[in-house]
Each structure stands twice: as C-alpha cells, then as structure tokens.
Amino acid sequence: MREIAYYPGCSLKDTAKGFEDSAISVSKDLGIELKELPRWNCCGTVYSLTDDNLMKQVGPIRNLVRARDQGYDSLYTLCSMCDNTLKRSNRLVKKDEDKLSKINNFMDQEEDYEGEIEVKHYLELLRDELGWQEIKAKVKEPLEGIKVAPYYGCMLTRPKEIGLDDPHKPSILDELITSLGGIPVDFPYESECCGSYNTVDKKEVVLGKTQTITGGANKAGADLIITACPLCHFNLDSRQAELLEVAPSHHPVPVIYFTQLMAVAFGDIDVSGFEKHAIDPEPGLNLDNTVVSKR
C-alpha cells in the first residue's frame, strides 16, 4: 500500500461523505492509502482575490504547514474548491516572498512555511501517476452503455496557472469515464458555472443554471453527471430536486462524484452513499438490474 497525504476538506466529512467513502474504497483497490492529515482546518473554499488581504490566505497555508510537519512533500485533495484554494494560495506565497514572510510572521506558533508542499488533485494522481491503464485494470463492472456527462465546473481547470487541464477543452474526466467502460457525453455546459455560492442568497440564479446544465446534459443523452465539487453537487442535485417541484417537465439527471462512479465500476457498490442524494442515481447507473443483482 502506498500512503499519500490526504486533505479532505469540511464537506467530505459531512454533506459529501459519499465522496470520501468512495475515494477511500477505490484507493484501496488501487493500492493506495489516503492518510488524512491528523489536524487540518477549513481552506476557506474560495481564494481571496484581493492583493492585500493576507488574513484569508492564512487558513490554506496553515494546512500546508500541517502537511509539511508530517513529513510530506505532496498533499492530495478531492474537493475541487479545496484544491483550487490550496493551490492558488500556495502559488501566491511561492512567488511572493514578502507575502509569505508576513504570513509566517503572523502564524508565530508554527515553523515557517517555505513552499515545501505541492498540492495535487486526486484526478492528477489517477492520470499522471497511475495512468488510465491501471484504472482500467481494476474495473470489475464496466459501465457498458452508460452515458456519463463530465461536469468540470470552474475550479478544476481555472485559472490556467493551476488548472489540471485545458480550461477550454478539458478531457481528464472524459478519459476517466472511458477507462471505466462508460461513454463520455459531449455537452456544452461542461465548464459552465452552476452559480456557486449564490445558492445562499440568490437561489433563483442557481435554479436557472441548474436547469440549463442538467437540461443540457439530458439533451445530450446523459444518464448521469459526474463532478468533483461538493458545492456543484449541492446545486445540481438538491437544487435540481427543488426545480422539479416548479418545473415538472424537467427531466431529472442524477449527479454523482467521480469516485462514486469509480466505486460502481470497481464493484465497491456498498460505499457509494447514494441514499443521501436528492435525485436517485441508481436508475441512471442501471444499478437495479445490473450491478446490484450481481451482489
């Protein structure tokens, strides 16, 4: 078992528990143990864009300090918002000594951070370190005939400096779907924002986006959508269920985490955590007559 340092982020301990459980399970299948940092704090979820407000960089950098103190040089993430925030803060302090020294001076109980950590997304581990062949080899229940819309959202690919794929034409989720035996569906909203945190105070904006994105996936023939973001998941899943109440003609499309799709294909169905989803993913996965029946 290869051990890697793992930063879960708050959602994966709570609302997105199915994301974490499935990731732990498929990692085991791949010979990898996700070693959660013994101590970590919220990354802040959104990167601060103001040049002078370093207070909002303290949370992300503190996590990198914790990882460094455990003796690691890489820290792996699953949540795309955590990934984005940690990577961007890390990039900021690596290229700006002055800002790094201010943050270090403020965190006076920790040993100075000197950019020792590289933040990596789990998808990068799959693509760059293991390779798709390795993933393919673990598939026990190929997703034959299942059409999956890869929803990249914003934070995996933007900005370019830290994105893990081409922001205009990403393919990493498509490649994953293919490796699992499924059919990636090309749909025009794969990188369009779901409305993000507007879900708190401008729900109507998010309902509109949810209708566009999930409707677009449906039109493209998708049986389900995959994501790496717990906030996208909330907006596209829970808010989609609300949308159905006001727009009964809307055709629901289930939304699951990419690791849950892997868990299904690897035959780890017990850890999928689908019972928490507002739109039941099982019909989209043909689970009722394929995988489940073989259990």
Partner: peptide, 26 residues
C-alpha cells in the same frame, strides 16, 4: 472563520478553540 488561530491563542484554559470551530463547521 479564517483559521487565524487567535481564539486558541486567547483561551485561558488552553483549549484548541480553532480546532473545535473547524469541527463545528464540519
């Protein structure tokens, strides 16, 4: 919470206040 850790440094009982705030968020 911005995880600044001021609460922990302030606590006269030496509690890990920032850690429990983070647990509360989770």
């Amino acid at each position: 919470c911005v995880s600044c850790n001021t609460c922990t440094k302030t606590c006269p009982q030496d509690l890990e206040v920032m850690d429990f705030v983070n647990e509360a968020i989770r």
